[in-house]
Structures are given as C-alpha cells and as structure tokens.
Amino acid sequence: MVISKKSSRVIGLAFSYVLLLALIVFFTFPFVFMINKSFMDRIDTSMYPVRFFPRHLYLDNYKGIFEVEMLRWLGNTMYITVFNMIGTPLSSSLVAYGFSKCDFKGKRFFFTMMISTIMLPGVVMQIPMYVIYNSLGWIGTYNPLTIPCLFGGGAMNVFLFMQFMKNIPREMDNAAKIDGANALVRYFYMTLPICVPLILMNVINIFMGCWNDYMGPLIYASSSEDKYTVGLGIYYKFIVAGSEGSFRTPGVKMAIGVLLALPSAVLFFIFQRQLIDGIMIGGVKG
C-alpha cells in the first residue's frame, strides 16, 4: 500500500501532537495536582489510594490562609517589591545613559569593571555581605533587600538598557543639547520615555524575582516574625518541620501554594511573548 505524501504528513503531525500533549501532561501535572488538592476536604486528602480529583469543590482551604498573618506578610513583600520596581530601572537607566550617551575619561575602564562583576561567584560573596550588613546594623531590616538596587541594579540590567539606548539616534540628543537642555533633562524627558517598553519588562521581572525570593528574606529578615515576607512566612508556617498545626492541613498547604504561584503565573501568561523574548535575548548576548 502506498501512502500518499499528504497523508503521511498528516500522520506525522498527529504523532507530534500526541507527543506534545503527553509532554504537557508531564509538565503541568504538579500544578494541576496542586490546584485539585487545594479543593479537597480532609476526607479526600486522607483517602488511600490517593485521589487526583476532589469529590466535590471544597473552598474552606482558602479560608485557612487568613488564619496566618497573610496581610502583614503581603504588606512587607510589597514594600520590598515596590522599592525594587522603582529603584532598579531608575538606577540602571541612569548608569546606562552615562555609558551610551556621555563621553568621559575612563569609560572603557569603568565598563570593564562593571562587566567583570558578573563573574563574581555568588557563593563567595554571600558571607561577607552578611558581615558588612551586620556592621551597618541592617540585619533584621529590609535594607539589604532594597538599598543595593539603587547602585546600578546589576551589570546585566545596565547592559540591557545600554543595548536599548544604542538604537536611539544620537542626533536627537545633540539637537536637544543645542536647544540648551542639560544632560539630566535629556535623560529624564527624552531617553527615559523611549525606554518605557524595556522598563515595563524590567518591572515585571523584578516583581517576579522579589515575589519568588525566599533566600534574601531568610538570611536578612528572619529574626522577628513581624518582618516575614509572604515567602518566608509560608516557609516557616507551612514547610519547616513541626509546622503541622491544626489549620495546616494538606488542603490548606496546597491552597497557599496556589495563591503563591498565582501572581507569577498570571503575569507570565499576559506577557509571555515579551518575557520569553527577553530570556532569549539575554541568552544570545550572554
């Protein structure tokens, strides 16, 4: 039997879709399970063998979230997040403007200095940073998680802004210079508005970074309970051994996991194309 070229292509396509669907089942399985289990009552979660679907929709798990100080944690997280969302793009773009639009002595030297900080190993830096923050009296405050973003926001980020500013014609800058606008005015009223798409991406990435971060708060702000961020609070109240209190049923744990994952997931779905493009650009340039 001779299979025509067209039908063999259809078979191939069908085969790809089956394979892709199997992959999707694999990759989304943990989240589907988490969501399902967040709607299970105590009888469902203690059944054996394990249930995958809840027998009926049980919503009380989501009430369990408010038995911890979720609102305070949320406020703390928001403080850190908003600070970084404003500070990082501002300081990164400031430094990037200096590098791409100003001429000054030592430009090459300072640029090399900045780029070489990318190679500093995180594992070596983390300990002396703690010692320094401690001597500044910053341990137990949010300063270690906020203040550093005012100092350039990281070499990679500055580099991204520089790449973006490279495409802004220099004539624009020169024209404004002739009209008497000083560098700060040119930066703030001309360059920054053009960079808005990049700033938007930056802000989303920073939000996701701060929201997902648990290491930073754990090291610097775990000494008192009223400093807990969302991630840290959940870590101490729901993950650490001995946190099996009356309201921390498996269902409530899952509900809290869903809630924690939700903001990042929603943002990712809205801005998927830009975010993936951003990752790709970072990868190719790096």
Binding site: P30, F31, F33, M34, M208, W211, N212, Y214, G231, I234, Y235, F238, I239, K253, M254, I256, G257, V258, L260, A261, S264, A265, F268
Partner: peptide, 10 residues
C-alpha cells in the same frame, strides 16, 4: 516561573 516555595509544597 513558579516560586520555589510553592514548588516545595507540592
């Protein structure tokens, strides 16, 4: 993109 804490729970 799922927060590590949420992944740990699940």
């Amino acid at each position: 993109i799922i927060p590590p804490i949420a992944s740990a729970i699940v």
